[in-house]
Design a protein around this nucleic acid. Sequence first.
DNA 1: TCTCATTTGTTCGTATGTATC
DNA 2: AGATACATACGAACAAATGAG
Lengths: 83, 83
Amino acid sequence: MAGQTVDVIRIDPESAAHPYLQLADQLRAGIKAGEIGPVLPSIMQLTEETGLVTGTIRRAIGILVDEGLVYTVPGRGTFVRRD
Amino acid sequence: MAGQTVDVIRIDPESAAHPYLQLADQLRAGIKAGEIGPVLPSIMQLTEETGLVTGTIRRAIGILVDEGLVYTVPGRGTFVRRD
DNA sequence: TCTCATTTGTTCGTATGTATC
DNA sequence: AGATACATACGAACAAATGAG
């Protein structure tokens, strides 16, 4: 199992903001607020909770990876980088 | 060991029907015809016999689980539900 | 009790085709 | 036309449960 369920994630399909950006923003905020971590919810969990598909989830997480905020380990999960 | 080899499974990659649906249909038909069971071939066996990958096999089996036709036991296998 | 092989479960990575905006 | 999103499938690694010995 990966991280806990995160009920702070709310994607608004009607919003002008793209879902992958909404998700990246909310994940980032949750991490910085200490509400998310040290292990992020799995892509499958996020798929269920957000209604988005894996490609979109991965894209949002990819942003946080690029920012150096988290890192992923294949077969394990996505982790908040502690430094 | 799990179930016997099942040479009734034939996935057509050229078909318009998605492989996971083809497999689910053929497994269901084989079970109802009494040709498959009481233990399904393992996921590994099915990957070899169909050329599909584990994710696709699992998805097909998941359909039969949802239908109540079979159930899975971790470390044991997938069994036809007898009722 | 311990080890090992088998089996299902979970997870990330990548690719392709289609649909929508 | 291009970017975004969805659906499906393939590839790979690791984890956990089970049973045999």
